[in-house]
Design a protein around this nucleic acid. Structure first.
Length: 875
RNA sequence: GCGGCUGUAGCUCAGAGGGAGAGCACCACCUUGACACGGUGGGGGCCACAGGUUCGAUUCCUGUCAGCCGCACCA
């Protein structure tokens, strides 16, 4: 039994130390490169990473074997919010201090300590799944070089007018105390209420009724808007309203944004707390007071409610509105509420000074480039998702109120108030020369640095050899859930700063789900730790599970049973290899392959191997890992193990030394190639086995990828062995159906229906004897059915198994009738097709021809079965 | 609202314009000298539904139903 635990660590170390993972930028070979989506340093490997890494590593190992200089560049990102939160929590637990107690500098130093201590945990986990990364090129988003790239891009974009600072509404997470970009907000349908509230006119001439889902923001109301065409309110525009629960007065204004049909057609305008109202505020030049602060608490503006949380405030405000007679009605409302994607807190639309990337021009460039087919998505459909998003992008808020991250290279002048943006800390203000400069406190969104990953990792902005050799990268492999976060940003920055798409292809895979189809998540506690899988079944089994039988871009569910199946396959391979090895002579060299001396089964397996090589290579080139895995599984188990090895035993246990030598050579040849083909998927076992095979080369990881060899294909042999197998199966079926114990020898008679068939059957007689457990085999073109025999019909003739004392005539009749029915329906199907003039006229000739052949063969078989049946009835 | 995915054996899923597949589960048999994480044989499916294109559709197109997922500021 194969035990991966004792093998995998050793093999990985061997590879790593042998330099097999290292790519040479000065190599003459064609280049192939992948940059790994950097996992969070704080994180630990989950099955999604495992899947992602498996696919990348399959691609890289395949290309490396196929003669490319292959680079798989690993690294991690600094994960601003996640890491900072983590270290803050640790700090609080250990010393009771907050980051403010420590101060920025000390705190950041603390995070670096943490990173140095735990940061290589995840990269060691990546090693455990076998990724053949070039660790000498490992990068971290906060490395000096990558930080320089970040500053360069920031300064450049600022100078090109694509980065600006503005006082705008952004998504604010009160718990994380930072701004978030639009895509870091998850909208969830939440039941709420639509409150209809009376706002009376100041002059006592009545009232308007507004509808709101957030009554607690009313203290920051600056107007009530109606549609300019709304006849109900046209003459009210400009009138003043008394804001309930306050002494404030606000005007009725007109704006096209209001929908007349919704609610009452009146909208309260709160520019500081609602993105739409903010736009209205800008259009009408309104004040933008805030009644909720950064901690999601009510400000002094809320008067008596100041200091309350927004939730408490709502309850109290609603109550007081009811008391005061302002509440008209309360309707149930299901509405989408933004939640922080990291901590699930309800996001507050918050007016503040932030930095933004102007997306319009960047998106346009990306769309143009996509239009020119400069990037290919696999599967294709993801391109639509991508372009649709690009069509509607909004500016990207990139500043984060954190300490851990790339600090924004912008300085404010206390003398003139202007901003200086520079690569290096400026001595003086660019505008007035003053030395009173303060650097912006904020850091950049982590994705800002991840967005530069394909080229920043290769040394950009310096013009390095790596960039020359390996950029643009060949493929990007990622799950579809981060196309917008990551892929899009890399595309923008790649085009803007390198004038190239950062990768030729984007290969998308799905998400891995729990067995019940739900997402794996910490809160549900239904996550499976890949390391546990590796510990129990080995990394190869995990990899094969994740790659085999999957479909591009689709999700998959995790099943331990599937891992078990993979483990069984690996074990099968291991045992087959043991068989091959134990049948090799210890001291003689292996014979050369001599196709002239091949037996029919040798020709067959060698041909099937060529076909498999062709098939698997094609699937891998198309990134169709599931199909590649399936083809290899079937060939290895069903054809090589179940049939060829069994055939080979005859020769190996026989007396013919020449045949034995050939068989050994074929076994080794096929196994060698199977190992090569399987290596990208299950690198550990294949390397381990390969090391003990009598083949030349330092390691499988550096061995060459098999090429299909047309001179070694014997199509006739494939057809012949197919027939031999059919005979053997038929006899086994007879044994099982007629309850003849496998241990009981039988007498086998075969009537060949052609000379060729006769010759073939004679040549494979030893196989028939062994596989059918026949004490005697009689083959001839004029064999006839003996009395009391069980019959089966195959393509090349008829099989008779005399069962003198055992035969149950009823059972045999039943068997033959079943077979007759089956054949009849086949004949019917074929003749029906052929009698259709349209089919014969319009279908491709080869299809018609093969249909004719089928019809003829089934006719013949049917006739045989009917004849036998008649004879049986006559008895 | 817009866009996308999925619907195939009891379960999980591949597949492809010309005879329905795999793994697991199930039934029967097998202590065969690589492997019981194994071997042999077997049962099981109107390929969601309705139209259309085609000589031919489970596969392509349209619609319906069901499940899921993105994107979207409707108070």
């Amino acid at each position: 039994m194969y035990e991966p635990q004792s093998v995998e660590k050793r093999i990985y170390q061997f590879w790593e130390e042998s330099g097999a993972f290292q790519a040479d930028s000065s190599s003459e070979k064609p280049k192939f490169s992948i940059v790994m989506p950097p996992p969070n340093v704080t994180g630990s490997l989950h099955l999604g990473h495992a899947w992602n890494n498996t696919l990348q590593d399959i691609i890289i190992r395949y290309r490396r074997m196929a003669g490319y200089e292959a680079l798989f560049l690993p690294g991690t990102d600094h994960a601003g919010i996640a890491t900072q939160t983590r270290v803050e929590k640790m700090l609080r637990e250990e010393t009771g201090q907050s980051r403010y107690d420590l101060g920025r500098e000390k705190f950041v130093e603390r995070v670096w300590d943490w990173k140095r201590e735990y940061g290589n945990r995840i990269t060691n986990q990546v090693r455990a799944i076998g990724s053949s990364c070039d660790w000498s090129r490992e990068r971290f988003t906060m490395d000096e070089g990558l930080s320089k790239a970040v500053r360069t891009v920031f300064v450049e974009l600022y100078n090109r007018g694509l980065i600006y600072r503005g006082n705008r509404i952004i998504n604010w997470c009160p718990r994380c105390s930072t701004a978030l970009s639009d895509i870091e907000v998850e909208h969830m349908e939440v039941p709420g209420k639509l409150y209809h509230v009376r706002y009376p006119y100041v002059d006592g001439s009545g009232e308007v009724v507004i509808a709101t889902s957030r009554p607690e923001t009313m203290f920051a109301d600056v107007a009530v808007a109606v549609h300019p065409d709304d006849t109900r309110y046209q003459n009210k525009i400009g009138k003043m309203l008394q804001l309930p629960l306050t002494d404030k007065q606000i005007p009725v204004i007109a704006d096209n944004y209001v929908e007349q049909e919704f609610g009452t057609g009146c909208v309260k305008i709160t520019p500081a707390h609602d993105p739409n109202d903010f736009e209205v505020g800008l259009r009408h030049n309104l004040e933008m007071p805030q009644c909720i602060d950064a901690d999601a608490k009510m400000t002094a503006l809320a008067g008596a409610y100041a200091g309350l949380s927004r939730e408490e405030a709502r309850i109290r405000v609603v109550e007081d509105l009811r008391q005061g007679g302002y509440m008209v009605k309360e309707e149930e409302l299901l509405h989408a509420v933004g939640h922080c994607s990291r901590c699930d807190t309800v996001v507050e639309p918050f007016l503040s000074d932030q930095w933004f990337v102007k997306m319009g021009p960047l998106a346009e460039k990306a769309l143009a480039s996509l239009g020119r087919k400069e990037l290919e998505f696999v599967p294709e459909r993801f391109e639509r998702v991508f372009t649709h998003w690009l069509d509607n992008v909004r500016d990207w808020c990139i500043s984060r109120q954190l300490w851990w991250g790339h600090r924004i290279p912008a300085w404010y002048c206390d003398s003139c108030g202007e901003i200086t943006v520079a690569m290096d800390t400026p001595e003086t203000c660019q505008h007035c020369g003053s030395k009173d400069l303060r650097q912006d406190d904020d850091v950049l969104d982590t994705w800002f640095s991840s967005g530069l990953w394909p080229f920043s990792t290769m040394g950009w902005p310096n013009d390095t050899e790596d960039l020359q050799a390996f950029y643009p990268t060949s493929v990007l492999v990622t799950a579809y859930d981060i196309v917008f976060f990551w892929v899009a940003r890399m595309v923008f920055t790649g085009l803007e700063f390198t004038d190239k798409m950062p990768f030729e292809k984007v290969v998308m895979h799905g998400l891995i789900r729990a067995a019940d189809g739900r997402k794996m998540s910490k809160s549900l506690g239904n996550g499976v730790d890949p390391l546990e899988v590796i510990e129990k079944y080995g990394a190869d089994a995990l990899r094969f599970t994740l790659a085999n039988g999957t479909s591009p871009g689709n999700d998959q569910r995790f099943y331990w049973e599937k891992v078990e199946g993979s483990r069984n396959f690996i074990n099968k391979l291991w045992n087959a290899s043991r068989f091959v090895l134990m049948n090799l002579p210890a001291d003689e060299p292996l014979q050369d392959l001599d196709p002239g001396a091949f037996s029919v089964v040798d020709k067959w397996i060698v041909t099937r191997l060529q076909e498999t090589v062709d098939e698997v290579s094609g699937h891998l080139l198309r990134y169709d890992f599931g199909e590649a895995g399936r083809a290899l599984y079937d060939f290895t188990w069903d054809e090589f193990c179940d049939w060829y090895i069994e055939f080979a035993k005859l020769s190996l246990y026989g007396e013919d030394e020449a045949a034995k030598g050939q068989t050994r050579a074929v076994l080794v040849y096929v196994l060698d190639n199977v190992l090569r083909l399987l290596h990208p998927m299950i690198p550990f076992v294949t390397e381990e086995i390969w090391q003990s095979l009598p083949v030349s080369g330092p390691s499988l990881i550096l061995a060459s990828w098999p090429q299909p060899d047309q001179t070694w294909t014997f199509p006739a042999a494939v057809e012949e062995v197919r027939q031999v197998i059919e005979v053997i199966r038929s006899v086994r079926n007879i044994r099982a159906e007629m309850n003849v114990a496998p241990s009981k020898p039988i007498h086998l008679l075969i009537r060949a229906n052609s000379v060729q068939s006769d010759a073939l059957l004679h040549s494979v007689e030893p196989y028939l004897k062994r596989f059918c457990n026949a004490e005697a085999v009689d083959i001839g073109t004029n064999q006839t059915a003996p009395d009391k025999a069980v019959t089966a019909v195959f393509g090349g003739g008829e099989i008779y198994v005399p069962l003198t004392d055992l035969v149950d005539l009823g059972a045999e009749q039943e068997r033959l009738q079943k077979e007759r029915d089956r054949l009849q329906s086949e004949v019917l199907r074929a003749t029906k097709k052929l009698s259709n003039q349209q089919f014969v006229a319009k279908a491709p000739p080869e299809v018609v021809e093969s249909e004719k052949q089928k019809a003829a063969e089934y006719q013949q078989r049917l006739a045989s079965v009917e004849e036998r049946l008649a004879a049986l009835m006559a008895d």
